[in-house]
Design a protein around this nucleic acid. Structure first.
Lengths: 208, 208
DNA sequence: TCCGCACGATACCGATGGGTATCGTTAGGC
DNA sequence: GCCTAACGATACCCATCGGTATCGTGCGGA
């Protein structure tokens, strides 16, 4: 529950549960869910398998909790961007895109945790899948809200376009050139917004 | 090795190698690579594990061969669309997008084989990963070529935008509404092309 | 001081999975 | 009509992995 600071630094000895979640985050992100055994997580967390099973019922529960935290981080980005640009939905959307774009190098060769996890969890009834679906629905709702507030016609279409672009960027970055991906993504988002904003006045510049 | 005239005794089933590849395709696509054991593939192919290892050195080799086939299918779509609309790159791109859009329902709850496989194969030196990377590079090259031929300024940017949209659509469809995804994707692609086609002349119709 | 309890370490269990060895059988080519 | 080779089936080897049981240990609170 304690969604405290998610810092990859496990230098200082945090309580076991935090260390376990940190280790799981690093390993799941870099290696994938199924490739990482509980034993490996325990070693990285400088604890033992037993300690993990004292805090989490099963490995699946640990996976689910990890994705819950990642989802909370994303939603925090939404909150931050809304607080930073109150009443300016266009800047909010661009801020969100920037958040993703700036995160691209970090995940470069290993993509979005949600996308990867879905690939590894084909069972839709898996609790982790439900976390992902709920998060995606939440994200879509907020994005549509921003587009509506921006006065864009057909906000659902715009939100869908933005979502496609954001997720496509994260996927494509896994095996392409990372250097330009962020800049390209920003231009795409700007283009989407401006195209919908003024369909009869497309002469406005799309470059930043 | 090259004797394709094997005569099955009882049923008119395909030669073992074909059956194995068919079974692998179905299972890998629906369940994922790591979740599917060689034994399961053998049962689905109505053969045995040994037969599989007679035709493929390892499971990884089978995975690689499967992805090679999928890549060939995609490239066939490129060929088809180029043959169908010779000298009309805009229609070629839209035809390609339609190919993806129409394929969305089929992969609905289980996404693109490449994206999923990358998630399951974090090792970039894996031969299957190299197949994927080569395919993506090839696809990008052809897409950039189409954009160049269409006289679009900054064809790399357009190709990147299209790629993001196509892959994003396939990812987002996994856990969202499939019904509108195809139509939304087509509108996105049209919007991308037309926005770049004539930034100073946006009065032309965007619908086909 | 002593009790409780979370923690650490190790050994273990059952299941699964990749890969191999070996058997008999069958089909096709000369 | 034989000889080679691919095929089918079974049993097996070994590693890994999720999960459990059982030890011991240190530490804080009443």
């Amino acid at each position: 529950m304690a969604s405290t600071a998610r810092r990859p630094s496990r230098v200082a000895k945090l309580p076991p549960r935090e260390r376990i979640l940190d280790a799981a985050e690093e390993l799941f992100q870099s290696e994938g869910i199924r490739r990482v055994g509980v034993q490996a997580i325990a070693e990285r967390a400088e604890t033992t398998k037993m300690a993990i099973y004292r805090h989490f019922e099963t490995k699946d529960a640990l996976v689910t909790e990890w994705l819950r935290i990642v989802a909370a981080d994303y939603q925090a980005a939404f909150d931050r961007v809304e607080a930073e640009y109150p009443g300016r939905p266009r800047e909010q959307i661009l801020g969100l895109a920037r958040f993703i774009a700036e995160g691209l190098p970090a995940i470069s060769h290993r993509g979005c945790p949600f996308i990867n996890s879905i690939a590894e969890l084909p069972d839709r009834s898996h609790p982790a899948r439900q976390v992902i679906e709920k998060h995606k629905a939440h994200q879509t709702r907020r994005l549509v809200g921003m587009c509506t507030e921006a006065g864009l016609p057909d906000p659902e279409q715009v939100a869908a376009e933005i979502t496609f672009a954001l997720e496509g960027a994260q996927v494509s970055t896994q095996n392409g050139s990372i250097d330009q991906a962020g800049a390209r993504l920003m231009r795409i988002i700007e283009g989407i917004i401006d195209r919908h904003r003024s369909p009869l006045d497309a002469s406005r510049a799309t470059t930043d």
